[in-house]
């Protein structure tokens, strides 16, 4: 395994981690806002708040880790993506800022404030849309080199069906992932009413997720034939992903084993995400940038990897502690522990 592949694998894994935890997070924010506005607050808010409260800040770190690692391992990507993404990334930052801070404002400062709940729920819903643009751009065809500098072609970007399918997929996937996870969580908390409602949401959002995902693969055939051909090479991964999807929906439908349902969903997205990643190799940005010509020097790469391993030795036990104390702590989940927040 070369250093380039090692680097991108680590980053891709962190991005996948972000995809899952952020989806749960954004979706939960949306369901919370939705329930507050439609008067179903009583059913959902409790479960959602219990999950979200201790982990929200951790979610954000996955993203920071990804883009800092990107600049570290592939400094040229800072140049290409930095120059072209000014507007979309700035919008994403603004949404992220609204979401993060208003979440804290509502949770710690003004529990149940409708305006705040709405702010972070809406920002969380717009975020996946604005972030998924990066994936679209990486497919190529939207960046021209003008006078030696990369320039984003907004017109092409916003008139492409690919852009909009990816936006819809990101939205549907966020709500789907979140609903499946929260169904499991609510069930663990022994909250029948919340479980039923969230299960319904999960089933509703499963269909748009799979339809747009299929549609995107089809659209890639026209947009980027080279990538499409590579995708087919990894076809078995997408097949496994599809089977896992059916499994999740079936379990939800039968109201059985929500835990397994969530882990199958995890597998579904893992196979699809890594399948997509492998087929994207070696390009970071079709056709301008590959992981090889953007890679940093070996000295820095080695230093980063050593730092990464040392960092993991510190983080994995701490994350385990966090999960044990809250996520997998029966008393906490069921709400037997009284609110011990400062």
């Amino acid at each position: 395994m070369t250093l380039e592949i090692l680097g991108i694998s680590v980053l891709w894994t962190f991005l996948f981690g972000y995809l899952i935890v952020a989806s749960i997070d954004f979706g939960a924010g949306f369901f919370n806002a939705y329930s507050v506005l439609t008067g179903k607050e009583r059913i959902l808010t409790n479960v959602i708040q219990r999950y979200l409260s201790p982990v929200w800040e951790v979610t954000n770190v996955f993203l920071v880790f990804f883009f800092v690692g990107m600049v570290g391992f592939f400094p040229s990507s800072a140049y290409y993506y930095g120059t072209t993404l000014l507007v979309p990334a700035s919008l994403a930052i603004i949404l992220l800022a609204i979401r993060g801070s208003y979440y804290a404002f509502e949770t710690y400062g003004a529990r149940g404030h409708k305006g705040y709940s709405f702010m972070y729920g809406a920002a969380g819903l717009l975020l996946p849309a604005s972030m998924s643009i990066v994936l679209t751009i990486s497919e190529g065809g939207f960046v021209d080199i003008v006078g030696g500098n990369p320039v984003l072609d907004y017109r092409a970007l916003f008139t492409s069906p690919l852009t909009w399918s990816i936006v819809v997929l990101s939205l549907a996937a966020v709500l789907y992932i979140s609903a499946v996870f929260l169904t499991w969580y609510a069930n663990k908390a022994g909250d029948r009413e919340a479980t039923d409602l969230l299960r319904k949401y999960a089933l509703i959002w499963s269909l748009p997720t799979i339809i747009t995902a299929g549609g995107i693969i089809w659209e890639l055939r026209a947009h980027n034939p080279e990538h499409y051909a590579r995708l087919l090479e990894f076809g078995w991964m997408f097949a496994v992903s599809a089977i896992l999807f059916v499994g999740t929906v079936w379990l939800l439908w039968k109201r059985r084993n929500y835990g397994l349902a969530f882990w199958m969903l995890f597998g579904q997205f893992a196979f699809a995400f890594y399948g997509y990643g492998f087929s994207h190799y070696p390009y970071l940005l079709y056709p301008h940038l590959t992981i090889y010509d953007s890679f940093t020097n070996p000295a820095m790469a080695t230093a980063l990897i050593v730092a990464f391993i040392l960092g993991l030795c510190l983080l994995v036990p701490s994350l385990y502690l966090l999960l044990r104390l809250f996520l997998f702590n029966k008393d906490y989940v069921k709400g037997k522990k009284s609110d011990e927040h400062a």
Partner: peptide, 20 residues
């Protein structure tokens, strides 16, 4: 890039324990 990368770890560490 190294200290920038290490900063995310420091921040990660802080975030986890602040939650706890």
């Amino acid at each position: 890039a190294l200290p920038l990368f290490m900063e995310t770890f420091a921040f990660f560490f802080e975030a986890i324990f602040l939650g706890i």
